[in-house]
Amino acid sequence: MESHRKIIHIDMDAFYASVEQHDNPALKGKPVAVGGSKERGVVAAASYEARKFGVRSAMPSVTAYQKCPQIVFVKPRFERYKEVSNQIHEVFHTYTDLIEPLSLDEAYLDVTQNKKGISSATMIAKAIRADIKAKTGLTASAGISTNKFIAKIASDYNKPDGITLVGPEKTETFLEQLAIEKFFGVGKVTAKKMRSLGINNGMDLKAWSKDDLITNFGKSGGFYYEIVRGNDDRPVNPNRIRKSLGAENTFDYDLIELVDMKLALEPIAVTVMKRLEKANTFGKTLTLKVKFKDFSQITRSQSLTEEIRTLDQLVSLSFDLLEQINWEEFPSGVRLLGITCSNFEKREIVQLLKEGHQLTLDF
């Protein structure tokens, strides 16, 4: 009988906002935005009650208030989020040491062999979710499958407080029926292009040859060809060291004025800072990426002697790099802006953990 890995992807539900609602019972059941204020700033995270009104992270606070006038803005408390994240990871380690954190609130776990000797990955996922709820008062969603890619998609399938199993016998059907936007790695712009080509779901994507996908989507086409077939051999890597963290945005129309570019950069900076805080990793180098309407692109970087740890620093440095560009040398019209932080402090690599023998799948 073929053997498979058992991978669980755990993703906390609206983590920042849920922590705030848990710590302040007066916020329970109310639409909550972490970050920003009624007058200015950008939303860093939104509760599910706020999301029902269309409020999303990286949205200007003024827009969030317009969509949901009863929304409650609270200041982020990253130290508290890190504290809760540590409690969650303590739960993970009672089941396995093969844990690959993606951020403060999500991680991959390989439970093929586990400390509890439980043969069912589904039972482990249920137990982990129950332990997290008992320890933190928060809910988590889980995806279970034979590889990381499908497990991550599955964890988002029944959010919030859901659990989804995609075993080997269900993989093909699950991916074929999945809307193209749900595929991890297919962004908003790519999804729009795919739909214009008649690719609306996994079955449509699977009908395309590898060569045709590469012709239309570059090297990413090869990735799309593999993932729609459920092919992902990446192991859960507890020793993964980040080299950079960033975010970018492609605009629906070209930006011409510097003031518009600055306005567009602020929510990107918020997203980057959110990811840095979630990963508890900070860099000394900031890189600004600019792509023009003819698809040519440039980057500009600046390195500091100290780590970039605040949103104000991130925004200020991004604006400085933007202002240093001699715009007369480049085509008029910017279609994409991006910010990346790198040059992280070297971390001591923990002792390598031996991956266990692959057992027969028993979900």
Rank of each mutant, 00 (worst) to 15 (best):
303 S>Q: 11
349 I>K: 07
333 G>W: 01
333 G>Q: 02
335 R>T: 00
305 T>F: 11
340 T>Q: 09
347 R>Q: 09
334 V>W: 00
299 T>D: 04
347 R>Y: 01
306 E>M: 11
314 L>N: 04
334 V>P: 00
323 E>G: 11
295 F>R: 08
310 T>S: 07
326 N>A: 15
313 Q>S: 12
307 E>K: 11
339 I>D: 07
321 L>C: 01
335 R>M: 01
352 L>E: 15
303 S>A: 13
343 N>H: 06
336 L>Q: 08
340 T>G: 14
329 E>I: 10
308 I>D: 03
344 F>V: 08
326 N>I: 06
336 L>W: 00
315 V>T: 00
295 F>S: 15
324 Q>R: 06
295 F>D: 14
306 E>Q: 11
347 R>M: 11
301 S>N: 08
349 I>G: 13
334 V>L: 04
301 S>I: 04
326 N>K: 15
346 K>I: 10
300 R>D: 01
331 P>M: 06
346 K>E: 05
316 S>M: 10
332 S>M: 12
311 L>Y: 09
336 L>I: 00
302 Q>E: 15
302 Q>C: 14
314 L>P: 00
319 F>V: 13
306 E>N: 07
327 W>C: 08
337 L>W: 04
351 Q>S: 11
323 E>V: 12
343 N>F: 02
326 N>V: 06
324 Q>G: 11
320 D>V: 08
340 T>K: 01
326 N>W: 05
295 F>A: 12
343 N>E: 09
343 N>W: 02
322 L>H: 01
297 Q>M: 12
348 E>A: 15
333 G>H: 01
341 C>A: 11
331 P>L: 12
342 S>P: 14
317 L>F: 08
346 K>A: 09
319 F>C: 13
327 W>R: 12
328 E>I: 14
333 G>E: 01
324 Q>L: 10
322 L>R: 01
348 E>K: 15
328 E>Y: 13
329 E>C: 07
329 E>P: 09
341 C>D: 03
350 V>S: 13
337 L>F: 03
333 G>S: 07
292 F>A: 00
320 D>F: 08
335 R>P: 01
301 S>H: 09
338 G>C: 00
309 R>K: 11
299 T>E: 08
344 F>N: 02
323 E>R: 03
294 D>C: 07
344 F>A: 00
321 L>Q: 06
318 S>F: 05
339 I>G: 05
322 L>P: 00
299 T>V: 15
305 T>H: 10
344 F>C: 03
344 F>W: 07
350 V>H: 13
346 K>C: 10
